[in-house]
Structure formats: C-alpha cells, structure tokens
Simulated assay, not measured.
Amino acid sequence: MMWVITVYLKGNLSTMFEFNSEKEAKEAFKNIHGCKILTEVINFHNPSYALVAV
C-alpha cells in the first residue's frame, strides 16, 4: 500500500506527495496548508489481495 497527499492550488493540481506508511502521511497532512486530499492506494496486483473462488 501507498499513501498519497494531493495538494490543489486555485483549482489546478499543484503537488503530490507519496508515503509508505499511514502514520507518516497523516503527520505530513497536518502540516500542509491549502486544499488537500489524503488517499490510500492499494495495489491489487499484489498476490496477497487475490480473490479466492469458493
């Protein structure tokens, strides 16, 4: 998993920050000013997320 903070400035995409942990991302989120979105990105190609047929 990865965490991404997207910061917008005047309606345009301004900056994206990537983090490896939720804790690290949330700490940075507190210190960033402006319109911002915190997103958890899940990689479904990871075998641990595979669907099992029943």
Results as ranks from 00 to 15, higher is better:
F44N: 07
K30R: 14
L13C: 00
S21L: 08
Y49L: 12
Y49P: 06
I42N: 09
M1E: 12
G34S: 08
K36W: 01
N20R: 13
F29D: 00
E40V: 03
K30P: 00
N12C: 03
G11L: 10
I5D: 07
K10T: 08
G34T: 09
G11W: 02
A28D: 03
F29M: 03
K10V: 07
Y8V: 11
T15Q: 15
W3Y: 15
K36T: 01
L9R: 14
I37N: 01
E27K: 15
L51W: 10
A50R: 13
A28M: 07
V41I: 11
K10L: 08
E18T: 12
H33M: 05
S48Q: 10
G11I: 02
E18P: 07
N20T: 14
T39A: 11
E40C: 11
Y49S: 04
K23Q: 11
M1K: 12
I5F: 06
V41C: 06
S48L: 12
N43C: 05
I37E: 09
M1G: 08
K23D: 01
T6G: 09
V7M: 06
S21E: 10
H33E: 13
V4N: 02
S14Q: 13
N31K: 15
P47L: 07
L38M: 01
I32R: 06
G11V: 00
T39N: 11
Y8L: 11
T6H: 11
K23N: 11
E24Q: 14
M1C: 08
S21I: 05
L9N: 13
E40R: 15
I37R: 13
C35R: 13
A25H: 04
K36E: 01
A25N: 09
N46W: 06
W3R: 10
T6D: 10
F29G: 01
L13G: 07
T15R: 15
V7K: 08
F17E: 08
K26P: 00
E40K: 15
N31G: 04
K26M: 10
V4K: 15
T6F: 06
E18C: 12
N12I: 03
I5W: 06
H45V: 04
N43A: 03
A25M: 08
P47G: 05
N43H: 08
E40S: 08
T6K: 12
K30Y: 00
E22D: 03
L9V: 10
Y49I: 00
N12R: 13
I32E: 03
C35P: 04
I32K: 09
M16L: 09
N46V: 06
I42V: 10
T6S: 14
P47M: 02
A25E: 07
Y8W: 15
G11Y: 00
M16S: 15
F29Q: 02
W3M: 04
A50F: 06
I5Q: 08
E40Y: 11
K36G: 07
C35V: 11
I42Q: 09
T39K: 07
V41T: 00
I37C: 08
V54G: 07
S21N: 00
T6E: 10
V54F: 11
Y49A: 05
E22T: 03
E40D: 01
A50E: 07
E24V: 14
G34K: 06
I5H: 06
M2H: 12
